[in-house]
Every structure is written in C-alpha cells, then in structure tokens.
Amino acid sequence: MTSELKTALGYECWVAEGPVLLDYADHVATLTLNRPESSNGMNIAMMRAIHEAVMRCHGDPRVRVVHVRGAGANFCAGGDVREFASKGEALGDFLRTVTAYLQMAVGGLIRLNATVVSEVQGYAAGGGGLGLVCASDLVVAAKSARFMAGATRVGMAPDGGASVILPHLVGFRRAAEIVLTNRVLGAEEAQAIGLINSIVPDDGLAGETRKLVGRLAANAPRASAAAKRLLWSGIGLSVESCLPEEARTVAELSSTADAREGLAAVLEKRTPNFTGA
C-alpha cells in the first residue's frame, strides 16, 4: 500500500521511510521492519529505529494495539551478519551498542499498555526475529513460517530477552534444545509448544492478522492494559533483571575468535571450525 493510499484511507504516516515504517489508524500502530533485501536482518540503524518506534507508540494514548510485521519474504532473519562480520575484532564493542538498542526495544514492547501482535512469515530467527516473537503478546504465523534461535551456531548467546522469555513460553528442556541445537521449528511445532498462538494459510496471513488486530483494538483499553501488565508481571520482572547479564554475555562472546569464525562460516556457507578461542 502506497503512502498516498494510506493517507486517503485515514492512516497517519508516522515514519514513512527507513529501516522501520510506522503507521497509525483506528487505535492500531503498524510497525513494519523494512529491510526486505536482507531478510529484515537487524543492523544498528534498524535496532535504533525499532526502539524509537516503540517509544512513539508509548507516547500516544490512542494506540491500543501494536502490529509488528516484516516487509518481504521473511519476518526477521536475526542480526545483520554482514554488518557484524565487517567489525572484525571490534565486534564486541559494536555489539554492546547494538544489544542495548534491541533490549530497550524488547523492554518497551513488554511494558507497552498496547497489546503487541506479531505477524510472522518466512523466518523468525536470532535475537531479532525470535526475540521479537518472544516479546509479543500474541503471534500469528503463516503455515510455512520457520523459527530458529541461531545464536550459538555463530559462537554467540541468545539476546533480545529470548534467554529469559523462551523458557517461560515453552519450558526449560524445550528452550535448551532450541537454543543449543539451533534446529528449525515449523509453524505447527511452534504452535504445539506454545511459541505462537495460531497458524493461517500463507495467502491469508495479512488478512487474518488484521482481523485479530481489529478485534483487540475494540477492547476496553484500560482493562486490556491492566490484564497485559498482570500477565507479564512475573516474566517481565525476570526479563528486566536478566537483560544486563544477557547483554554482557553477548558482548563478551562476540569478542572471541569463535564468533568471528561463526559469522565468516555463515557468509561463506560452510561449517564453522570452532576452537574455543
């Protein structure tokens, strides 16, 4: 949908260009990850833009639902591997800043009065993709959607709050398997273990998500906000207290030779040779 058509239909275009788009209409803010050429891989500009978009939603009491989606074939394939690999031995310092923005965005989504609904197609991977899924209140996925943790395969640790939220959603044993094996989960399994709420046909994803978002936007806003706060109270407190340690661990591991080897292996499409260095 073009910006002109959105305006004609009554949308307020809050952010019209860049790595994140943000529109508002009828109590719904639609946050679109907008780097489809890189499978919405998160670089520092996107992470900063997500945080700014979440803060914009925080600041407008009209917003009752935040609808998170990804442009193109994938919801979010995780961090931007090319940008990370380009930092070489400075990766650790770089990721301290990157992780800070991602964690602020995740914390903001959890604390929003608005209900957060993610619409997932293609891959949701890494701290970006899987992290956003974990931080959402409700998740609708296309039948062909795929989910993967991905961090340890490049010598890093889970981030985006996933290390805390994922075990609450699916249980410790399943979370450990997902994180340590990095196997890909299909939509049916993701629903069965409690990672997502519903599955719809690929060609009906946008329409079905909009229907859900519309129903949620019609709810009593103060009651919905209070219910969300109560539901997140235990998990949210754990996330807030654990985010600093998660960030420290990610930055520490990203300074290792194994992390640089893992990123290089992804780019070169080969098996990494980890040495523990």
Rank of each mutant, 00 (worst) to 15 (best):
I193W: 01
T99R: 06
L91G: 01
T99M: 12
M156K: 00
H67W: 11
T32E: 11
V140C: 08
D26K: 04
M104G: 06
G207R: 13
L263M: 14
L253E: 09
W232V: 11
A45T: 13
V15A: 12
T30A: 15
L91E: 01
A264T: 10
A16D: 10
S255A: 13
E268H: 12
N273K: 12
E89Y: 05
E208L: 07
R82F: 04
E188W: 06
T152E: 14
C13V: 12
E17Y: 14
G276E: 12
R69P: 08
V117W: 01
G88Y: 01
S241V: 02
S38Q: 02
V63E: 01
T30K: 03
L166Y: 12
A259M: 14
R260C: 04
E268G: 06
V117C: 01
N273W: 02
E252W: 05
K211T: 10
A149T: 03
L130Y: 00
L9I: 10
L230V: 15
T271Y: 09
Y11A: 02
G92P: 01
A145W: 02
V184Y: 00
V120K: 01
R210A: 10
R62D: 10
A141Q: 14
L231N: 09
G131R: 05
S238V: 03
I199W: 01
I50K: 06
F172L: 06
K87Q: 13
H58Q: 04
G78I: 01
S255C: 03
S38N: 09
V266H: 05
N40R: 13
R183L: 11
E208K: 09
E119C: 11
R153T: 07
H58M: 04
A125I: 03
I178Q: 00
W232F: 06
R62K: 08
P158E: 12
N40D: 13
V179G: 12
L21S: 02
C242T: 07
I196D: 06
L253P: 05
R270A: 06
H168K: 07
L185R: 06
A85C: 10
A247F: 04
P36T: 04
R111W: 06
Y123H: 15
S163P: 00
A25K: 10
R69A: 11
V213E: 04
K87I: 09
A90V: 01
G131N: 00
V116G: 13
S255T: 05
R215N: 03
E4R: 10
W14H: 08
N182L: 08
A16V: 14
T30Q: 11
D26R: 03
A49S: 15
A265N: 01
V184D: 06
S86M: 14
A257T: 05
N74G: 02
V250I: 13
L112A: 02
A157K: 08
G122E: 01
L91P: 14
T2L: 12
G131T: 06
G107F: 00
Q191T: 14
P272N: 10
R56F: 09
V15Y: 14
A141K: 06
Y123K: 13
S233H: 09
V179C: 05
G79A: 11
G88W: 02
A124W: 11
L267V: 03
A90R: 07
A220P: 02
A8N: 13
G214N: 12
G107C: 13
T209R: 07
E177G: 00
L185N: 07
P272D: 07
K228Y: 09
Q121Y: 02
T99A: 11
L22Y: 08
A192E: 10
E246A: 15
S136V: 04
L91A: 09
V63M: 08
F75L: 08
N43S: 13
